[in-house]
């Protein structure tokens, strides 16, 4: 059974020509898949649709074995699939790193003590414990990116959706991110314009062209 299956999605932003015209994809457990395509092709839209932040005009979103239609259907999806946003400032909104990482687990109904335990474990795994009590808006770009990953991993998702994760990262931080991601067991759906990063993390690729997804040879 595929973790996520998008079937024949159609979508147009109001008053604009359609971005998706029958896009389909399947993501299996443990699979790593990248999405390529020109700017504005609808790659981010596709990720947002998986999480129900955007509804398709037509087509089906099947996640974790169930059809997802209404807002309530997506609550479970958002728990089991984690999206790392393009801009880290959108994702880190709590005053301190610990509070930001704990935000998801607390929403899942964990107690304060359990949440703090998760914070320490996740930050420890990513070797970010030194950032624990830092204030989020004072982090550097690279630190922000790694902390956003920590906030998503704290929810223990089965799938990671990454939207341009290497945006604004220097080489050292990019290498660090790659190393962390490669060691994760989760299935990954990657949107990235960086061919080298794609080749290393998720060589299997689909190209989004004219609103459809086509496998890329190689």
């Amino acid at each position: 059974m595929a973790l996520i299956a998008l079937e024949d999605l159609h979508f147009a932003y109001p008053g604009q020509s359609p971005v998706l015209r029958g896009a389909s994809l399947r993501l299996e457990a443990g699979q790593r898949l990248s999405l390529t395509g020109p700017n504005g092709a609808g790659k981010s839209t596709l990720l947002r649709m998986i999480l129900g932040l955007q509804r398709p005009d037509r087509g089906r979103v099947v996640a974790f074995g169930k059809m997802r239609r209404a807002e309530a259907d997506f609550h479970e999806v958002r728990r089991r699939a984690g999206l790392v946003f393009q801009d880290a400032d959108d994702q880190l909104f709590c005053p301190t790193v610990a509070e930001d990482v704990a935000f998801g687990p607390l929403n899942l109904g964990k107690s304060r003590a359990e949440a703090l335990e998760i914070v320490d474990r996740v930050l420890g795994d990513l070797e970010l414990l030194h950032l624990r009590d830092r204030i989020t808006h004072k982090l550097s770009g690279g630190e922000k990116r790694l902390v956003t990953l920590a906030t998503v991993l704290a929810m223990a998702p089965e799938v990671l959706l990454l939207d341009e994760p290497t945006n604004a990262l220097d080489q050292t931080n990019e290498a660090r991110l790659l190393e962390i991601l490669q060691a994760l067991p989760q299935a990954i759906l990657l949107v990235s314009h960086d061919p080298a990063f794609r080749a290393k993390l998720a060589p299997e690729a689909l190209d989004l062209r004219d609103g459809r997804l086509v496998p890329v040879a190689g």
Binding site: R48, L83, D87, D90, E99, F103, G104, L108, A115, M155
Partner: peptide, 20 residues
């Protein structure tokens, strides 16, 4: 709007708990 979406993705349900 993007921040709200990011919060929703992490299961935001109307409460933000401060830990300190």
């Amino acid at each position: 709007e993007r921040i709200l979406e990011a919060m929703k993705c992490r299961g935001f349900s109307g409460r933000i708990v401060l830990l300190r």
